[in-house]
Amino acid sequence: MSPTLPSTTAQLQRDLQRLLDQAVKDGVAPAVSCAVALAGKDLPVLAAGKAGRHTFFDLASITKLFTTVTALILVDDGSLELDTAVGRHLRAYARGPKSAVTLRHLLTHTSGLPSEWRGWDAALSQGRGFDRQVLVADLLATDLDGAPGTRFEYSCAGFNTVMALAEHVTKTPWGQLVKERLLYQLPTLDITGTPRVERCAPTEFQPALGRGLVQGIVHDEAAWSLGGLSGNAGMFATADGLRVFGTALRDGLPGILSPGLAAEMWRSQLPEILGGNFNPADPGFGQGLGLRINQQPWMGSSGVQSRGHGGFTGTSLLVDKGHRTVIALLTNRVNPSRDGNDATGLRKAVSDVVHSFAP
Protein backbone atom coordinates (compact mmCIF):
# COMPACT_ATOMS: atom_id res chain seq x y z
CA MET A 1 0.00 0.00 0.00
CA SER A 2 1.30 3.44 -0.88
CA PRO A 3 2.54 5.34 2.21
CA THR A 4 1.41 8.61 0.60
CA LEU A 5 -2.29 7.72 0.81
CA PRO A 6 -4.28 9.89 3.22
CA SER A 7 -5.00 8.08 6.46
CA THR A 8 -8.75 7.85 5.78
CA THR A 9 -8.11 6.30 2.37
CA ALA A 10 -5.60 3.90 3.86
CA GLN A 11 -8.23 2.86 6.40
CA LEU A 12 -10.74 2.26 3.61
CA GLN A 13 -8.21 0.03 1.86
CA ARG A 14 -7.67 -1.95 5.06
CA ASP A 15 -11.42 -2.33 5.61
CA LEU A 16 -11.96 -3.48 2.03
CA GLN A 17 -9.09 -5.96 2.17
CA ARG A 18 -10.58 -7.47 5.34
CA LEU A 19 -13.92 -7.90 3.57
CA LEU A 20 -12.30 -9.58 0.57
CA ASP A 21 -10.15 -11.87 2.72
CA GLN A 22 -13.14 -12.83 4.86
CA ALA A 23 -15.23 -13.59 1.75
CA VAL A 24 -12.59 -16.03 0.54
CA LYS A 25 -12.29 -17.57 4.02
CA ASP A 26 -16.09 -17.95 4.23
CA GLY A 27 -16.25 -19.68 0.85
CA VAL A 28 -18.14 -16.93 -0.96
CA ALA A 29 -15.66 -17.22 -3.85
CA PRO A 30 -12.15 -18.60 -4.32
CA ALA A 31 -11.01 -15.43 -6.14
CA VAL A 32 -11.96 -11.81 -5.45
CA SER A 33 -10.70 -8.46 -6.74
CA CYS A 34 -11.86 -4.89 -6.19
CA ALA A 35 -10.98 -1.51 -7.68
CA VAL A 36 -12.43 1.70 -6.25
CA ALA A 37 -12.41 5.33 -7.30
CA LEU A 38 -13.34 7.63 -4.40
CA ALA A 39 -13.97 11.34 -4.90
CA GLY A 40 -12.47 10.96 -8.36
CA LYS A 41 -9.25 9.34 -7.14
CA ASP A 42 -8.28 5.78 -8.11
CA LEU A 43 -7.22 3.63 -5.17
CA PRO A 44 -4.86 0.65 -5.46
CA VAL A 45 -6.47 -2.54 -6.77
CA LEU A 46 -7.10 -5.17 -4.09
CA ALA A 47 -7.26 -8.95 -4.47
CA ALA A 48 -7.80 -12.00 -2.32
CA GLY A 49 -7.69 -15.77 -2.66
CA LYS A 50 -6.71 -17.15 -6.06
CA ALA A 51 -6.74 -13.73 -7.73
CA GLY A 52 -4.14 -11.14 -8.50
CA ARG A 53 -4.56 -7.52 -9.53
CA HIS A 54 -4.36 -8.55 -13.19
CA THR A 55 -6.78 -11.48 -13.08
CA PHE A 56 -9.61 -11.37 -15.62
CA PHE A 57 -13.12 -12.28 -14.48
CA ASP A 58 -16.25 -13.22 -16.41
CA LEU A 59 -18.44 -10.12 -16.02
CA ALA A 60 -21.69 -11.96 -16.80
CA SER A 61 -24.59 -9.46 -17.03
CA ILE A 62 -22.40 -6.40 -16.54
CA THR A 63 -21.88 -7.06 -20.25
CA LYS A 64 -25.34 -5.53 -20.77
CA LEU A 65 -23.84 -2.10 -20.09
CA PHE A 66 -21.35 -2.57 -22.92
CA THR A 67 -24.23 -3.70 -25.12
CA THR A 68 -26.20 -0.59 -24.18
CA VAL A 69 -23.38 1.81 -24.97
CA THR A 70 -22.63 0.08 -28.28
CA ALA A 71 -26.30 0.30 -29.28
CA LEU A 72 -26.44 3.97 -28.30
CA ILE A 73 -23.32 4.68 -30.37
CA LEU A 74 -25.34 3.34 -33.31
CA VAL A 75 -28.20 5.66 -32.34
CA ASP A 76 -25.75 8.56 -32.33
CA ASP A 77 -24.56 7.76 -35.85
CA GLY A 78 -28.10 7.28 -37.18
CA SER A 79 -27.96 3.53 -37.70
CA LEU A 80 -30.58 2.87 -35.01
CA GLU A 81 -33.37 4.82 -33.32
CA LEU A 82 -34.44 4.61 -29.69
CA ASP A 83 -38.16 4.98 -30.24
CA THR A 84 -38.75 3.54 -33.71
CA ALA A 85 -40.13 0.01 -33.89
CA VAL A 86 -37.28 -2.48 -34.35
CA GLY A 87 -39.53 -4.22 -36.88
CA ARG A 88 -38.30 -1.57 -39.30
CA HIS A 89 -35.09 -3.62 -39.40
CA LEU A 90 -36.01 -7.10 -38.12
CA ARG A 91 -38.55 -9.09 -40.12
CA ALA A 92 -39.42 -11.20 -37.06
CA TYR A 93 -40.69 -8.02 -35.38
CA ALA A 94 -42.51 -6.54 -38.37
CA ARG A 95 -46.06 -7.60 -37.47
CA GLY A 96 -48.24 -8.67 -34.58
CA PRO A 97 -47.67 -7.64 -30.94
CA LYS A 98 -43.89 -7.52 -31.48
CA SER A 99 -44.28 -4.71 -34.02
CA ALA A 100 -44.56 -2.25 -31.12
CA VAL A 101 -41.18 -3.15 -29.60
CA THR A 102 -38.54 -0.39 -29.68
CA LEU A 103 -34.86 -0.28 -28.77
CA ARG A 104 -35.80 1.72 -25.68
CA HIS A 105 -38.05 -1.16 -24.61
CA LEU A 106 -35.23 -3.65 -25.09
CA LEU A 107 -32.72 -1.56 -23.13
CA THR A 108 -35.11 -1.08 -20.20
CA HIS A 109 -36.51 -4.63 -19.92
CA THR A 110 -39.98 -3.44 -20.90
CA SER A 111 -40.28 -5.15 -24.30
CA GLY A 112 -42.52 -7.94 -23.04
CA LEU A 113 -39.90 -10.59 -23.85
CA PRO A 114 -39.39 -13.35 -21.27
CA SER A 115 -36.40 -13.33 -18.97
CA GLU A 116 -34.62 -16.16 -20.78
CA TRP A 117 -34.23 -17.65 -24.22
CA ARG A 118 -33.33 -21.31 -24.00
CA GLY A 119 -32.80 -22.27 -27.62
CA TRP A 120 -29.34 -23.45 -26.65
CA ASP A 121 -30.86 -26.05 -24.33
CA ALA A 122 -33.10 -27.44 -27.07
CA ALA A 123 -30.15 -27.60 -29.47
CA LEU A 124 -28.09 -29.61 -26.98
CA SER A 125 -30.89 -31.97 -25.98
CA GLN A 126 -31.66 -32.70 -29.65
CA GLY A 127 -27.99 -33.27 -30.45
CA ARG A 128 -27.99 -30.53 -33.09
CA GLY A 129 -24.98 -28.62 -31.87
CA PHE A 130 -24.76 -24.84 -32.13
CA ASP A 131 -25.47 -23.23 -35.49
CA ARG A 132 -25.40 -19.51 -34.71
CA GLN A 133 -27.60 -18.47 -37.63
CA VAL A 134 -30.26 -21.00 -36.64
CA LEU A 135 -30.02 -20.00 -32.98
CA VAL A 136 -30.38 -16.27 -33.71
CA ALA A 137 -33.44 -16.99 -35.85
CA ASP A 138 -34.88 -19.00 -32.96
CA LEU A 139 -34.09 -16.15 -30.54
CA LEU A 140 -35.87 -13.62 -32.77
CA ALA A 141 -38.90 -15.91 -32.98
CA THR A 142 -39.37 -15.76 -29.20
CA ASP A 143 -42.94 -14.81 -28.30
CA LEU A 144 -43.71 -11.94 -25.96
CA ASP A 145 -45.04 -12.64 -22.48
CA GLY A 146 -46.74 -9.25 -22.31
CA ALA A 147 -47.48 -6.12 -24.29
CA PRO A 148 -44.49 -3.82 -24.86
CA GLY A 149 -44.27 -0.90 -22.46
CA THR A 150 -46.71 -2.32 -19.89
CA ARG A 151 -44.42 -4.09 -17.42
CA PHE A 152 -40.83 -4.53 -16.31
CA GLU A 153 -39.32 -8.00 -16.62
CA TYR A 154 -35.56 -8.36 -16.55
CA SER A 155 -34.72 -10.02 -19.86
CA CYS A 156 -31.47 -11.50 -21.09
CA ALA A 157 -33.41 -12.39 -24.25
CA GLY A 158 -34.01 -8.69 -24.83
CA PHE A 159 -30.32 -7.84 -24.77
CA ASN A 160 -29.45 -10.66 -27.14
CA THR A 161 -32.12 -9.21 -29.41
CA VAL A 162 -30.26 -5.87 -29.25
CA MET A 163 -27.16 -7.75 -30.44
CA ALA A 164 -29.06 -9.30 -33.34
CA LEU A 165 -30.53 -5.92 -34.27
CA ALA A 166 -27.12 -4.21 -34.25
CA GLU A 167 -25.54 -6.97 -36.33
CA HIS A 168 -28.35 -6.73 -38.85
CA VAL A 169 -28.13 -2.98 -39.41
CA THR A 170 -24.32 -2.79 -39.44
CA LYS A 171 -23.61 -6.11 -41.21
CA THR A 172 -20.82 -6.52 -38.65
CA PRO A 173 -20.22 -9.41 -36.22
CA TRP A 174 -21.10 -8.39 -32.67
CA GLY A 175 -17.67 -8.96 -31.16
CA GLN A 176 -16.02 -6.83 -33.83
CA LEU A 177 -18.67 -4.13 -33.46
CA VAL A 178 -18.23 -3.81 -29.69
CA LYS A 179 -14.46 -3.82 -29.99
CA GLU A 180 -14.22 -1.23 -32.75
CA ARG A 181 -16.98 1.11 -31.66
CA LEU A 182 -16.52 0.98 -27.89
CA LEU A 183 -13.53 -0.89 -26.47
CA TYR A 184 -11.00 0.87 -28.69
CA GLN A 185 -12.28 4.18 -27.31
CA LEU A 186 -11.52 3.25 -23.68
CA PRO A 187 -8.04 3.90 -22.21
CA THR A 188 -7.49 0.29 -21.12
CA LEU A 189 -6.60 -3.09 -22.59
CA ASP A 190 -8.12 -4.90 -19.63
CA ILE A 191 -11.61 -5.39 -21.07
CA THR A 192 -12.18 -8.01 -23.75
CA GLY A 193 -14.52 -10.59 -25.17
CA THR A 194 -11.61 -12.90 -26.03
CA PRO A 195 -9.39 -13.25 -22.95
CA ARG A 196 -6.33 -15.42 -22.57
CA VAL A 197 -7.44 -18.50 -20.68
CA GLU A 198 -4.47 -18.59 -18.33
CA ARG A 199 -5.25 -15.07 -17.08
CA CYS A 200 -8.88 -15.84 -16.19
CA ALA A 201 -10.46 -16.90 -12.93
CA PRO A 202 -12.33 -20.16 -13.61
CA THR A 203 -16.09 -20.31 -13.18
CA GLU A 204 -18.30 -23.39 -13.02
CA PHE A 205 -17.52 -27.08 -13.44
CA GLN A 206 -20.14 -28.22 -16.00
CA PRO A 207 -19.53 -31.84 -17.03
CA ALA A 208 -23.24 -32.34 -17.77
CA LEU A 209 -22.91 -29.84 -20.64
CA GLY A 210 -19.65 -31.34 -21.84
CA ARG A 211 -17.73 -28.23 -20.84
CA GLY A 212 -15.73 -29.42 -17.85
CA LEU A 213 -14.25 -26.54 -15.88
CA VAL A 214 -15.21 -23.32 -17.64
CA GLN A 215 -12.29 -20.91 -17.87
CA GLY A 216 -11.71 -18.07 -20.31
CA ILE A 217 -15.02 -18.95 -22.00
CA VAL A 218 -18.28 -17.26 -21.12
CA HIS A 219 -20.14 -19.01 -18.29
CA ASP A 220 -23.63 -18.02 -19.46
CA GLU A 221 -25.03 -20.83 -21.60
CA ALA A 222 -27.02 -18.63 -23.99
CA ALA A 223 -23.97 -16.49 -24.76
CA TRP A 224 -21.84 -19.64 -25.07
CA SER A 225 -24.20 -21.07 -27.68
CA LEU A 226 -24.10 -17.80 -29.63
CA GLY A 227 -20.32 -17.87 -29.88
CA GLY A 228 -19.09 -16.11 -26.74
CA LEU A 229 -19.46 -12.35 -26.39
CA SER A 230 -23.17 -11.68 -26.81
CA GLY A 231 -25.73 -9.07 -25.88
CA ASN A 232 -26.38 -10.47 -22.42
CA ALA A 233 -22.96 -11.79 -21.32
CA GLY A 234 -19.45 -12.62 -22.45
CA MET A 235 -17.27 -9.66 -21.49
CA PHE A 236 -14.19 -10.24 -19.33
CA ALA A 237 -12.19 -7.63 -17.40
CA THR A 238 -9.81 -7.02 -14.56
CA ALA A 239 -11.09 -4.95 -11.67
CA ASP A 240 -9.02 -2.00 -12.87
CA GLY A 241 -10.31 -2.37 -16.43
CA LEU A 242 -13.91 -2.39 -15.24
CA ARG A 243 -13.17 0.68 -13.10
CA VAL A 244 -11.98 2.48 -16.24
CA PHE A 245 -15.33 1.76 -17.89
CA GLY A 246 -17.19 2.82 -14.73
CA THR A 247 -15.24 6.08 -14.65
CA ALA A 248 -16.25 6.75 -18.25
CA LEU A 249 -19.89 6.15 -17.29
CA ARG A 250 -19.55 8.45 -14.29
CA ASP A 251 -18.09 11.22 -16.43
CA GLY A 252 -20.72 10.98 -19.19
CA LEU A 253 -18.83 8.80 -21.70
CA PRO A 254 -16.93 11.73 -23.26
CA GLY A 255 -15.83 11.07 -26.83
CA ILE A 256 -18.00 7.95 -26.93
CA LEU A 257 -21.62 9.13 -26.66
CA SER A 258 -23.25 12.49 -27.28
CA PRO A 259 -24.07 14.28 -24.00
CA GLY A 260 -27.79 13.89 -24.62
CA LEU A 261 -27.65 10.12 -25.02
CA ALA A 262 -25.25 9.71 -22.09
CA ALA A 263 -27.74 11.61 -19.92
CA GLU A 264 -30.60 9.50 -21.27
CA MET A 265 -28.73 6.37 -20.29
CA TRP A 266 -28.50 7.67 -16.71
CA ARG A 267 -32.11 8.89 -16.45
CA SER A 268 -34.79 6.82 -14.72
CA GLN A 269 -36.93 5.50 -17.58
CA LEU A 270 -39.73 3.43 -16.10
CA PRO A 271 -42.18 6.08 -14.85
CA GLU A 272 -42.46 7.49 -18.37
CA ILE A 273 -42.49 4.16 -20.22
CA LEU A 274 -44.91 2.31 -17.95
CA GLY A 275 -47.17 5.23 -17.07
CA GLY A 276 -50.07 3.98 -14.96
CA ASN A 277 -48.44 0.56 -14.71
CA PHE A 278 -45.44 1.97 -12.85
CA ASN A 279 -45.21 0.92 -9.21
CA PRO A 280 -42.23 2.51 -7.43
CA ALA A 281 -42.58 0.03 -4.58
CA ASP A 282 -41.86 -2.94 -6.83
CA PRO A 283 -38.37 -4.25 -6.01
CA GLY A 284 -37.60 -4.73 -9.69
CA PHE A 285 -37.83 -1.05 -10.45
CA GLY A 286 -35.01 1.42 -10.88
CA GLN A 287 -33.89 1.32 -14.50
CA GLY A 288 -32.13 3.66 -16.90
CA LEU A 289 -31.03 2.64 -20.37
CA GLY A 290 -29.12 -0.51 -19.42
CA LEU A 291 -28.19 0.87 -16.00
CA ARG A 292 -29.89 -0.46 -12.86
CA ILE A 293 -30.80 2.24 -10.33
CA ASN A 294 -30.84 2.10 -6.52
CA GLN A 295 -30.63 -1.67 -6.23
CA GLN A 296 -30.61 -1.67 -2.43
CA PRO A 297 -29.77 -5.34 -1.82
CA TRP A 298 -26.28 -4.85 -3.24
CA MET A 299 -25.81 -1.11 -3.81
CA GLY A 300 -26.28 -0.51 -0.10
CA SER A 301 -28.39 1.85 1.98
CA SER A 302 -26.48 4.90 0.73
CA GLY A 303 -26.76 3.91 -2.93
CA VAL A 304 -30.03 5.72 -3.60
CA GLN A 305 -28.53 7.70 -6.48
CA SER A 306 -26.16 4.97 -7.62
CA ARG A 307 -26.28 3.30 -11.01
CA GLY A 308 -24.65 0.10 -12.17
CA HIS A 309 -25.17 -3.59 -12.79
CA GLY A 310 -24.52 -6.95 -11.22
CA GLY A 311 -23.54 -10.26 -12.77
CA PHE A 312 -24.53 -13.85 -12.02
CA THR A 313 -20.90 -14.92 -11.63
CA GLY A 314 -20.61 -12.66 -8.57
CA THR A 315 -19.61 -9.37 -10.16
CA SER A 316 -20.84 -5.80 -9.81
CA LEU A 317 -20.14 -2.29 -11.02
CA LEU A 318 -21.46 0.66 -9.00
CA VAL A 319 -21.18 4.27 -10.17
CA ASP A 320 -22.21 7.32 -8.12
CA LYS A 321 -21.89 10.73 -9.77
CA GLY A 322 -22.62 12.71 -6.62
CA HIS A 323 -19.69 11.21 -4.73
CA ARG A 324 -17.61 10.66 -7.89
CA THR A 325 -17.36 7.04 -6.80
CA VAL A 326 -16.82 3.85 -8.80
CA ILE A 327 -16.75 0.35 -7.29
CA ALA A 328 -15.70 -2.56 -9.50
CA LEU A 329 -16.06 -5.79 -7.51
CA LEU A 330 -15.25 -9.08 -9.22
CA THR A 331 -15.59 -12.61 -7.93
CA ASN A 332 -15.96 -16.10 -9.37
CA ARG A 333 -18.58 -17.16 -6.83
CA VAL A 334 -19.89 -19.85 -9.26
CA ASN A 335 -16.63 -21.79 -8.95
CA PRO A 336 -16.95 -24.73 -8.71
CA SER A 337 -20.76 -24.55 -8.46
CA ARG A 338 -23.48 -21.92 -8.76
CA ASP A 339 -25.25 -23.38 -5.72
CA GLY A 340 -23.21 -21.50 -3.12
CA ASN A 341 -23.29 -17.95 -1.79
CA ASP A 342 -24.57 -15.46 -4.39
CA ALA A 343 -22.17 -12.75 -3.14
CA THR A 344 -24.97 -10.23 -2.53
CA GLY A 345 -23.83 -9.77 1.06
CA LEU A 346 -20.26 -9.09 -0.02
CA ARG A 347 -21.38 -6.64 -2.70
CA LYS A 348 -23.50 -4.73 -0.18
CA ALA A 349 -20.76 -4.73 2.46
CA VAL A 350 -18.25 -3.32 -0.02
CA SER A 351 -20.73 -0.67 -1.21
CA ASP A 352 -21.55 0.34 2.37
CA VAL A 353 -17.95 0.70 3.49
CA VAL A 354 -16.97 2.75 0.40
CA HIS A 355 -20.00 5.02 0.85
CA SER A 356 -19.06 5.50 4.49
CA PHE A 357 -15.79 7.10 3.38
CA ALA A 358 -17.32 9.20 0.59
CA PRO A 359 -17.19 12.97 1.15
Rank of each mutant, 00 (worst) to 15 (best):
K179D: 15
T150Y: 12
K179T: 15
G308Y: 03
G246W: 15
L72E: 07
S258V: 00
W224V: 00
S7Y: 01
P195A: 09
V319W: 02
P148D: 02
Q269W: 08
N332V: 14
A263L: 05
D76T: 01
G210H: 09
E221M: 04
R324K: 14
G119V: 02
L226D: 06
F236I: 05
L106N: 12
P97E: 04
P44S: 07
S351D: 07
S125N: 14
I327N: 08
V178M: 11
V197I: 15
G158M: 08
S337K: 13
T84P: 00
A328G: 07
A237C: 02
T344V: 12
R338A: 14
C156Q: 02
G276D: 04
S356D: 15
G322H: 14
T4M: 08
L213S: 06
A137E: 11
P195M: 09
G52H: 02
D190K: 01
V244G: 02
A222N: 11
E81R: 15
G290S: 05
G288N: 04
T247N: 11
G322S: 13
T70N: 09
G146A: 15
L274N: 12
T172V: 12
A281H: 14
L177V: 06
D339T: 00
D342H: 08
V197P: 00
A223R: 03
E81K: 15
A358P: 01
A263N: 05
R151G: 07
S351M: 03
L59C: 07
L140N: 01
R18Q: 15
G303M: 03
T67D: 04
N332Q: 13
L249Q: 08
E81L: 11
A233V: 11
L144S: 14
L59N: 05
L12K: 09
L80H: 12
P207M: 07
R338N: 05
T142I: 06
A31W: 02
L291Y: 09
P359E: 14
E264G: 12
F152M: 07
D342Y: 02
L103I: 04
A100H: 15
A201L: 04
L165I: 01
W120T: 09
N294Q: 06
T63K: 12
V178D: 10
L106I: 12
F312E: 05
P280R: 13
L140A: 01
Q176P: 03
P44V: 10
I256S: 10
L80D: 12
G129M: 11
F130H: 07
R104G: 00
C34M: 03
H323Q: 15
G27M: 11
G158V: 06
E167V: 06
V218C: 11
G300N: 13
